[in-house]
Simulated scan of single mutants.
Amino acid sequence: MEADPDPGAAATATATAGRRPPRARKFPEGPAPDPAGSHFERRIRSFQPRRSRVTPGQADALRRLWPLWGFDIDGQRTLDPAAMFEGRPVVLEIGFGMGEATAQMAAADPDTGILAVDVHTPGQGNLLGLAERAGLRNLRVANGDAIILLRAMLPPASLDGLRVFFPDPWPKKRHHKRRLIQPEFLSLAAGVLKPGALLHCATDWEPYAEQMLEVLTAHPDYANTLPDGGYAPRPAFRPLTRFEGQGMDKGHRVHDLLFCRVER
Rank of each mutant, 00 (worst) to 15 (best):
93 E>R: 09
193 L>M: 15
220 P>W: 12
17 A>I: 10
5 P>M: 13
195 P>N: 14
105 M>V: 00
37 G>N: 05
31 P>N: 11
184 E>C: 07
256 D>F: 00
246 Q>K: 00
207 P>E: 11
71 F>P: 03
197 A>L: 14
80 D>H: 08
58 Q>I: 10
158 S>H: 13
43 R>H: 07
199 L>D: 04
67 P>L: 12
262 V>M: 02
45 R>T: 15
20 R>M: 03
70 G>V: 13
230 G>A: 05
71 F>Q: 03
128 L>C: 11
134 A>E: 15
196 G>E: 12
47 F>I: 04
232 A>G: 03
52 S>Q: 10
169 P>R: 10
182 Q>A: 15
35 P>G: 12
137 R>E: 15
186 L>D: 03
123 G>H: 06
95 G>S: 04
117 V>W: 08
2 E>A: 06
264 R>P: 07
58 Q>V: 09
256 D>I: 01
102 T>I: 10
72 D>R: 06
93 E>M: 09
216 L>M: 15
197 A>N: 08
229 G>N: 08
1 M>S: 08
148 I>H: 03
185 F>W: 15
35 P>C: 11
96 F>P: 03
2 E>F: 08
89 P>Q: 09
144 G>D: 12
169 P>S: 10
146 A>H: 13
148 I>S: 01
123 G>Y: 02
163 R>C: 07
36 A>C: 01
248 M>V: 14
219 H>I: 13
122 P>F: 05
218 A>C: 01
48 Q>L: 14
214 E>M: 12
234 R>W: 00
42 R>N: 04
216 L>A: 09
249 D>I: 05
204 D>C: 06
252 H>P: 01
108 A>Q: 12
122 P>M: 10
172 K>C: 06
200 H>Q: 11
250 K>M: 11
211 Q>R: 12
127 L>F: 02
28 P>I: 03
230 G>L: 01
231 Y>K: 06
235 P>Q: 01
113 G>E: 03
120 H>S: 07
42 R>D: 01
140 R>W: 00
180 L>W: 06
91 V>D: 02
213 L>C: 01
133 R>H: 04
2 E>M: 02
103 A>S: 15
58 Q>S: 04
165 F>I: 13
14 T>N: 03
245 G>I: 01
105 M>G: 07
184 E>Q: 15
239 P>H: 02
244 E>G: 00
133 R>L: 08
189 A>F: 00
20 R>Q: 05
229 G>A: 09
6 D>I: 01
94 I>Q: 02
124 Q>M: 14
228 D>H: 12
177 K>H: 13
